[in-house]
Design a protein around this nucleic acid. Structure first.
Lengths: 152, 152
DNA sequence: ATCGATATTGACACAAAGTATCACTAGTGA
DNA sequence: TCACTAGTGATACTTTGTGTCAATATCGAT
């Protein structure tokens, strides 16, 4: 199993992200880079509204719509991952390119990313048996990290 | 792998559900049985708002809050399952007691339930390596069913 | 360096989905 | 039948996200 205990190791630099934006035909605007910057500062999952709050009262305040639009763009380019918890609340994790899943601490939000996905076998079996064309799946794991277990 | 192509086979009867409600200390009220009745009529995933719409204009119209509350109660008793798609929209599937996962058609909503869960091994590995206390996980699969593939 | 087409922005209104309140109603056990 | 209390529903509210559109900023072409 591959793991990334330190989220930094999967983070892209701001230059790499700007390069990706250009590659995908997006313009490099001021508000966009402010949002990207803010996203990179987060090492734990954050919600769209958190980001809106952070960026709405600063010197260069960014509109709500722009924050949502930029998050969507970044997610579509695999710069960040949108994950939905069982209670239906979505949050974003920065630095998660490729096919990854997450183990989240329900107390402090710290995240372990893993690429081991036991789904491929299940999916081919399911496809065989049901003749479905299978497009996507959700798989996220929730629990309590050792540190939060100790402090309770 | 166990499958249930016909959702009826996993449906509880209204009597069984009323029995469970009593067992859990809930009262058997008029609105509650109307909601249960409506839930049982659904063989495909439905949203809370769909149910609100169905039940708000009838003879005995049920309030929005009651619908939401009853769905929560039923989900807590394993009479129905709340599942959240990758886009964050939750829906309910009736008749899914126990540990089950679902394969949903993104076009028509038909559902195949399966109990084969490849997670147990992954979870014990994750727990070993991270020392997390693991509480829950999401695992749902989305695609297009054979019938909808043909009609496109 | 300037220009012009157009992608992007942000204020605003709107929509969807769910929650809190609270006076009133109706099950339920005694 | 009575009294206690769980449950109800109208309403207002919150949260989270989307649509609109005039004004602005970016970027390739000149």
């Amino acid at each position: 199993m591959q793991q990334t205990q330190n989220p930094h190791t999967t983070h892209l630099t701001i230059e790499e992200i700007e390069h990706r934006l250009r590659q995908h035909g997006y313009r490099l605007t001021g508000p966009r880079t402010v949002v990207v910057d803010a996203v990179l500062r987060h090492q734990r999952p954050f919600t769209a509204e958190q980001l809106v709050a952070e960026l709405s009262s600063g010197d260069d305040s960014i509109g709500r719509a722009t924050v949502y639009r930029t998050l969507e763009v970044l997610a579509s380019m695999d710069v960040l991952t949108r994950i939905v918890s069982p209670d239906g609340h979505p949050s974003y994790i920065s630095g998660a390119p490729g096919h990854r899943h997450h183990l989240l601490c329900q107390v402090c939000g710290i995240t372990v990313t893993f690429t081991a996905c036991p789904m491929s076998e299940l999916i081919s079996t399911l496809a065989d048996e049901t003749k479905f064309q299978i497009n996507e799946h959700t798989l996220e794991v929730f629990g309590v990290c050792p540190s939060c277990q100790a402090h309770q």
